[in-house]
Write a protein that binds this DNA or RNA. Sequence first.
DNA 1: CTAATATTATTGTTTTACGATAATTAATAT
DNA 2: ATATTAATTATCGTAAAACAATAATATTAG
Lengths: 72, 72
Amino acid sequence: MPIRVRLNVMLAERNVKSKELAEFVGITEANLSLLKQGKVKGVRFDTLERICTYLKCQPGDLLRHEGDDASA
Amino acid sequence: MPIRVRLNVMLAERNVKSKELAEFVGITEANLSLLKQGKVKGVRFDTLERICTYLKCQPGDLLRHEGDDASA
DNA sequence: CTAATATTATTGTTTTACGATAATTAATAT
DNA sequence: ATATTAATTATCGTAAAACAATAATATTAG
């Protein structure tokens, strides 16, 4: 069970455009899109940090580890 | 304000040895130590995932973004 | 349709996570 | 003190991948 990137949800909730976040973070829209779609294998902390700063959230809001709960 | 890696705390709380976590995750003790000390610039999701699995925790328990609260 | 936004695709570069190893430094006994 | 264990730090090397730059498609909205 992988780590799920919830950036998509966060952006939708706050009605933040990819472009403005990408500009603030300092990465291209293309790469931000890949991150949003969960198509990257990892993330650098400085990138994560800037995203958190802009969205005023914690890494835990963006990254979720699903599948270790024993809720039957 | 950077991302703080709280792995150190988590291991201490659960009394987990670096060696056993390193073996489970599939990385060397040396690299796990670097991650623990916050001396890496990023992390791969599959590594993060295995750590979360072993510690039965969420990424948010391991990574914290500090310094964006406006508690005056 | 047009226009704005977002995704995907390509190519290339640079960064770096990580392995492998060894040495050093704590701790924890004995 | 001295083993024994655990953890950190240090080198060197490599493979992976984050990222840039760009262009081509979607997707969505008017």
